[in-house]
Structures are given as C-alpha cells and as structure tokens.
C-alpha cells in the first residue's frame, strides 16, 4: 500500500522571510491585551477560586443532603431503596421506629461514605420520598482524614428553618440515636428469630 503524503503549504516569499510583518502583527495583539489588563484587568477570565466560586448548574451532582418534610422532620422513611441501588455500596442505613406513630420509620443511622461515592445520582432517582438530593452545590470536599468523609445523618440533613415549615412540632426534634435494637424499635414485637 502506498503511503499517503500530504504536502503542507508553507507561506513563502519576501514578506515571510523577513519575519517583521508577522512579528509586528503579533506584537500588536499582545500589547493590546497587555494595556487593557494593565489598567483594570478587563479581559481576565480567571476565577480566584477560594474567594470566588464558579456558578454551578442546578443539576450538578454535589454533596448529598437529606431533605425535611412539611413538619420539619426528615423526609426519609428508611426504605433502603437508595442503599440497594447504590452501585458503590456506600450508603449505610439503620431504620428505627419513631416515637410519633404517624411518622413510622426513620433512619437512626444514615451514613454516606463520600470517598466511595461515584456521584452517579442513582440514590436521588431511587428515593420515593424525595428525601435525598444532591443539589447542595458543594463541589469540593477536602479533608485530612478518611473518617471525615463518612458523612453522618446529622451532617447531611438540612438545617432547620422554622419559617419554612408549617408545623414545627418536630422542628428541632433532636433525633434520637438509640444504642440498641430494642431502644430503636420500642413498639415492635421484636425481630423474629430466623
């Protein structure tokens, strides 16, 4: 097979041989930018990162948050949908029974290991209660220890805003973190032995 050869067209002639026209047109451009930026940084496109933040789209998948319902309580009903769908198995939920029977279940433990998370957003789509979202806009998490990346329920939940919730009964309800199974499920008949 014959090799294909592409002839590159080179600019020849006196104008190119003297370099000066090209150098001067280049200088005109760079000097223009230099002068514009010398007085007031007009063209600078840099974002001074820690002080200025780039605009993040609303659909951008950032750190998770756990939403609250109208009562101001966590919307999550501890159904394990997200934990099941999660491809990197980084969500860890333990369900508990709420003192208020109308609320039924709630997550006693809800940990997300953000180091293992691949930010696929499947947990958000799986949730039947719109309880987990990734719209915090937190695009970078930098800590110095692995444990810090293991976000707990209380770190993930939204901060409580009394004005936004109609019935602030459970607003700042300090979610109990029971130590034993019996404490977490006081109304249950006990877990059947298998």
């Amino acid at each position: 097979m014959e090799l294909k050869v592409k002839k590159v067209q080179r600019l020849d002639g006196v104008r190119e041989a003297f370099y000066f026209p090209a150098i001067f047109s280049g200088l005109r451009l760079t000097v223009k930018h230099f002068w514009r930026n010398l007085f007031g940084s007009k063209d600078v496109v840099t974002i001074n990162y820690p002080e200025e933040k780039r605009h993040v789209s609303e659909r951008w998948r950032g750190r998770h948050r756990l939403t609250r319902n109208d009562n101001g309580f966590l919307s999550c009903v501890a159904c394990y949908m997200c934990e099941t769908v999660c491809p990197s198995k980084c969500i860890h939920i333990e369900a508990g029974e709420h003192p208020d029977l109308s609320v039924e279940k709630y997550p006693v433990v809800f940990n997300i290991d953000e180091l293992r998370c691949v930010f696929c957003g499947l947990c958000v789509e799986a949730c039947p209660k719109d309880a987990i979202r990734m719209d915090t806009g937190i695009i970078s998490m930098a800590y110095t220890s692995r444990e810090t990346f293991d976000f707990t329920r209380d770190l993930l939940r939204d901060s409580y805003d009394p004005k936004a919730h109609s019935n602030p009964k459970y607003g700042d309800y300090d979610l109990p973190s029971p130590s034993s199974q019996e404490e977490a499920l006081p109304n249950s008949q006990g877990v059947p032995a298998t």
């Binding site: 760079t30 930018h33 230099f34 930026n37 010398l38 940084s41 063209d43 600078v44 496109v45 840099t46 001074n48």
Partner: peptide
Amino acid sequence: KWSAMIQDRV
C-alpha cells in the same frame, strides 16, 4: 505578572 496580563490571567 506581565505575561499574565498578555494572556488574560491574574
């Protein structure tokens, strides 16, 4: 500094 100005950087 000047090269930054030429290239629209900080």
